[in-house]
Amino acid sequence: MLSRKSDFFIAFLVICLMLLLLMTVHAAFSVRHAMPNIQAKARMVRGLHLTDLSLFTDARYTRHPSMADLHTAFQDHPMSFEHFPSGAIVFPPSHIHSYGLDQ
């Protein structure tokens, strides 16, 4: 049946498209499946009045970026290399720029 190379390639593309579709279906189901758990976490955030995700525990300003005070993110020289790799991912929160400094 598949006698030409183009047949194989087209078949490959069709399979890929189906996998992509499958992927979106899987994603949709996973989200739905995860929702109760996310909701439970949301309740925990509400109950404990949490403000941040526990992603990077290495420094105060990466553990609680939204609570970082005006200077924590710049404790070292602004151009210095980060001590913590996560510091390269976590930005100082934008409200540090918008208020405070210009008061």
Partner: peptide
């Protein structure tokens, strides 16, 4: 990369 220097890092499944 995410772990970085932290001894403690969360393990969680990302939701697609």
């Amino acid at each position: 990369v995410l772990k970085g220097w932290s001894v403690l890092y969360p393990e969680f499944r990302l939701v697609p």
